[in-house]
C-alpha cells in the first residue's frame, strides 16, 4: 500500500518543482490575468445588460433594477434606419474587399515574381505616402466627387468611400501578399510553365489557389475596415440614409433630438457579435497574416 502511494507521487514533469516564491509568483500571475480579464469583461457586460434592460431610459445609468426586454431592439429596428445602415455598410465593405482583392492579387504576384524597374522604390514611396492620414485629402475628395458625379451621375458618395478605402489598402496588402507568395517555391511556377501554363494561368491555376488563405485574410481585413471606421463616413456621407453603421449609431448618442443610449448599446451589440465570432474563429489566420506581411515582406 505504501509503495503504491510512492508511485503516485512520482514526479513526472520536466519542470523544476516550484519553490514557495515560485508559487507566489504563479498566484500573482493568475491574479493579474484574472483582473485584466475582469477589466475587459465588465464594460462589455454592462453593454449587454443595458441592451436588454427594459428599465433604462434614454440615458444609461447604473441601476440595479433589471427587467429583460427587447424594447431597445424594437426601437432600433422601428425608429432608426439601422437596417439601412447595415445594408450600406455591407455594400461598402463587400465592394471594398472585391476591389482590393482584384487589384492586390495582381500586384502581389507581380511584385513577388518579377524583377522590374522601380519595384522597390514604388513600394517604399506608396508605403510612406500612406502614413499621411487619408483624411488629409478630404477637401479634394469632396471636390473630386462633385466633378465625377457630374460626369457620371450614378457615382455616389458611398462609391467614393469605396475608392478611398481601396486606395488606402493597396500598398500594405500588396506587401503582405507579396510576402506570402515569396514563400511559395518558384519551382511550382516552373512546373506550371512546363505543364503548359501562361503567366496568367500560372497565377490563376497554381499560385492563387495556394495563396488562397492569405487572400482570404486580406479580403476579410478589407471587409472589416468599413465596419470599424467612423471618420470618413461621418465626413463624406451627408444623409442618414447613406450612413454606415458607425456614423449611424453615433447619432443615437450624439444627437440630442434622438438620443437613445440603450438603443445604441443594442445596435452596438448586434454589430459586434458577428464580428467577434468571426475574430475568435479566425484569430490565428488574422494574426499570422499581419505578422507575416510585416516580418517576411
Amino acid at each position: 500500500m505504501k509503495k503504491q502511494k510512492h508511485k503516485n507521487a512520482l514526479y513526472l514533469s520536466d519542470r523544476q518543482p516550484l519553490a514557495f516564491a515560485g508559487k507566489i509568483g504563479v498566484l500573482m500571475m493568475y491574479i493579474i490575468l484574472a483582473s485584466w480579464a475582469a477589466a475587459i469583461i465588465w464594460p462589455l457586460y454592462q453593454m449587454i445588460v443595458s441592451a436588454f434592460n427594459g428599465r433604462q431610459g434614454s440615458y444609461l445609468i447604473l441601476n440595479r433594477e433589471f427587467e429583460f426586454s427587447w424594447e431597445h431592439f424594437e426601437y432600433l429596428f422601428e425608429e432608426t434606419l439601422y437596417l439601412t445602415w447595415v445594408k450600406n455598410t455591407i455594400f461598402i465593405a463587400v465592394t471594398t474587399a472585391i476591389v482590393i482583392l482584384l487589384i492586390v492579387s495582381f500586384t502581389g504576384y507581380a511584385y513577388s515574381r518579377y524583377r522590374f524597374k522601380g519595384r522597390r522604390a514604388s513600394l517604399m514611396a506608396i508605403l510612406l505616402i500612406q502614413t499621411i492620414p487619408t483624411f488629409a485629402g478630404i477637401a479634394a475628395y469632396y471636390a473630386m466627387h462633385t466633378i465625377i458625379s457630374n460626369i457620371i451621375p450614378a457615382f455616389s458618395r458611398q462609391m467614393m468611400l469605396v475608392l478611398i478605402y481601396a486606395g488606402g489598402g493597396i500598398a500594405s496588402n500588396t506587401f503582405i501578399l507579396k510576402g506570402y507568395i515569396d514563400s511559395i517555391s518558384t519551382e511550382l511556377d516552373d512546373a506550371g510553365r512546363m505543364d503548359g501554363c501562361s503567366s496568367m494561368k500560372v497565377y490563376r491555376l497554381i499560385i492563387m489557389p495556394i495563396a488562397r488563405p492569405m487572400l482570404a485574410v486580406i479580403g476579410l481585413w478589407s471587409f472589416i475596415g468599413p465596419f470599424m471606421d467612423y471618420l470618413l463616413p461621418r465626413v463624406l456621407l451627408t444623409s442618414p440614409q447613406t450612413y454606415t453603421l458607425a456614423a449611424g449609431l453615433f447619432t443615437l448618442i450624439n444627437d440630442i433630438r434622438n438620443t437613445n443610449q440603450p438603443a445604441f448599446a443594442a445596435g452596438g451589440l448586434l454589430t459586434a457579435v458577428p464580428i467577434v465570432i468571426m475574430f475568435i474563429l479566425l484569430q490565428n489566420q488574422l494574426v499570422s497574416g499581419l505578422a507575416k506581411g510585416s516580418v517576411k515582406g
Binding site: 517555391s185 519551382e187 511550382l188 516552373d190 512546373a191 506550371g192 497554381i206 489557389p209 495556394i210
Partner: peptide
C-alpha cells in the same frame, strides 16, 4: 522535368 523540391501542386 522533375524538380529538386518536387514542385507538386499542394492544392
Amino acid at each position: 522535368m522533375v524538380f529538386q523540391s518536387y514542385a507538386l501542386y499542394p492544392h
